[in-house]
């Protein structure tokens, strides 16, 4: 018994010699989660993405293109002719012949009328932005060998191979120019009609586009129809196919229907107002 008390006393003595259990002497539990400090402000008192020191923090940004003492890239090369007039050039968004065939196969285009910019936009798969100088669509030759549609199409630009592919299948193609205002009406006719504004008149192409749209080779809408029929034969010989006789086609009328050079919607004249709610056309006197 005596030894026991002795041991107890020993232990107590040891305990007394040990530091006290206080808040200052205890450590966090092992593997316990350390809470991060709560900063002040919206993002916990950080720099809000502006960085530390310098023009980044002060947000006095350098002028565009400045490289802190280096010769700026934009002045490094004295002559860049390929950019000349780039802000004025017309862009035509490409549609390959394969994509056109897919549109026909998936029944997204009505082959009973003219396939024009509006009908291509209405597929919902292609769009243009006239205010970014996109003046319409161009047909590229990719998949021209696979094309099997007999269509009457109007695009803004077409390669020789694309023209050949359409004419080989008994179709009809014209390249046509639309000015920016007409394009705004064409990309979304419903929006235009709901403005209650008359259908605009199509303007003549600018001088630098006139050569393209008046050449029979490019199937321009301002070219002489007789010359176009000659060029059709020339192209058939160039690509080595027999030109189908479009004059003897039962759908001749439908296939060769074209718009007036001043017209933007087939069947609707410039100056008319369309009320979609009443399904009525209001014509000026």
């Amino acid at each position: 018994m005596g030894s026991v008390t002795n041991t107890t006393e020993k232990a107590l003595k040891m305990l007394r010699a040990l530091p006290r259990v206080t808040i200052g002497n205890i450590r966090p539990n092992p593997d316990s989660k350390q809470r991060s400090k709560r900063g002040r402000g919206q993002h916990g008192g950080d720099k809000h993405g502006a960085g530390n020191k310098g023009s980044g923090q002060r947000q006095n940004f350098m002028r565009l293109g400045y490289e802190t003492g280096n010769t700026p890239f934009y002045t490094r090369f004295p002559y860049e002719p390929y950019y000349k007039g780039h802000h004025l050039r017309r862009e035509y968004r490409p549609i390959s012949m394969l994509q056109l065939q897919t549109l026909l196969d998936t029944n997204r285009l009505d082959t009973n009328g003219i396939i024009d910019l509006t009908s291509i936009c209405n597929t919902g798969l292609f769009s243009i932005k006239p205010d970014e100088r996109q003046y319409g669509f161009q047909l590229t030759d990719e998949g021209a060998d696979l094309f099997r549609g007999k269509i009457n199409i109007e695009v803004q630009y077409a390669s020789d191979e694309a023209i050949a592919a359409i004419e080989k299948n008994g179709g009809h193609i014209r390249t046509a120019y639309y000015d920016m205002r007409s394009l705004q009406a064409m990309i979304n006719p419903q929006k235009w009609f709901e403005k209650g504004v008359p259908i605009p008149k199509r303007m003549v192409p600018p001088l630098d586009a006139m050569e393209y749209y008046s050449s029979a080779e490019r199937r321009g809408y301002l070219a002489d129809p007789e010359e176009i029929s000659k060029e059709r034969l020339v192209l058939a010989q160039k690509f080595g196919y027999e030109l189908p006789k479009i004059e003897e086609d039962p759908d001749f009328e439908r296939l060769t229907a074209t718009k007036d050079p001043r017209q933007i919607f087939y069947g609707l004249e410039p100056g008319w107002v369309v009320s979609l709610k009443d399904k009525a056309i209001i014509k000026p006197k």
Binding site: F193, E194, K195, G196, V197, P198, G271, V273, S275, L276, K277, D278, A280, I282, P284
Partner: peptide, 19 residues
Amino acid sequence: RMMFGRYGLSSGVDPRICF
């Protein structure tokens, strides 16, 4: 004009203002 374009003749707008 917009009222006529959207709601047609039922809007009560004289369509002559569209021109």
